[in-house]
Amino acid sequence: MAYFLQQLINGLTLGAVYGLIAIGYTMVYGIIGMINFAHGEIYMIGAFICMIAFAVLGFMGIASVPMALLVVLLLAIILTAAYGWTVERIAYRPLRGSFRLAPLISAIGMSIFLQNYVQLLQGARVKAMEPVISGGFVLMRDGSFQVTLSYLQLMIMSVTVVLMAGFTTVIHRTPLGRAQRACEQDQKMAALSGIDVDRTISLTFVLGAGLAAVAGVMNTLYYGVIDFFIGFLVGLKAFTAAVLGGIGSLPGAMLGGLMIGLIEAFWAAYFDAAYKDVAAFSVLVLVLIFRPSGLLGRPKVEKV
């Protein structure tokens, strides 16, 4: 029971981060119908900027942890969002309205480019940092086994919840959200009714990159090690999460993220850790077979 509870906490933490990245995939897919293959790399860049910002702050002698955290988070969001914007501007916007596979190939190219760009600038070796936040609550004791909820885990979950709530409000209540939903339905009509489609799409990338940056900061704090290749697998799993939850649906992305996190944590705990990714993909395939539109996705009615 105690072991189970601990895995639940670990899984939810992991899942919260996947969910944040999955939102970026699901929004972009919803609005322009493409898999933004480079989104995993955006997350990786967010993680690097986080670690660099901490290093620079430490160099400048800023010691207050809450202060440093806030500055790092803001810097990571802004700088990573700039990367998201640039990627869209260079690799996807010129291809709008082109044939189906072109943007995807371009995205794969962009992903390869960004990986090697970071590798060239920062080196191929793993980067590590000291834990910034340590300690936590002991929730339960079972013999020698302790169930702990670390402060960091608590922070990851609460930041995710706050961001999700804020995000849902943005999509449902603000003009930007309305414009986004309009573009999702019909870009031509949206343009005709005075929506700046290019700007809306750019903002979607910026928002998605911002969330990926938060995920990057969280995971960097959580694991303490990063390298230029972390974006690939995390990105793949976050996309899996988006599809699992029903691509195009924000709550779906979050739910899918949590499910992938839980599957991974429990599989690693009770079965073979080496095959945890295989388990996550197998669940995806099963869901797609029995519920092709994902858990919370709306089934698409074919227009004939």
């Binding site: 660099i52 700088l79 600038l121 920062q122 080196g123 070796r125 980067k127």
Partner: peptide, 11 residues
Amino acid sequence: LPLAGVRLPSG
């Protein structure tokens, strides 16, 4: 600025 301007130590 961040990625090219600063290089993280590897060890």
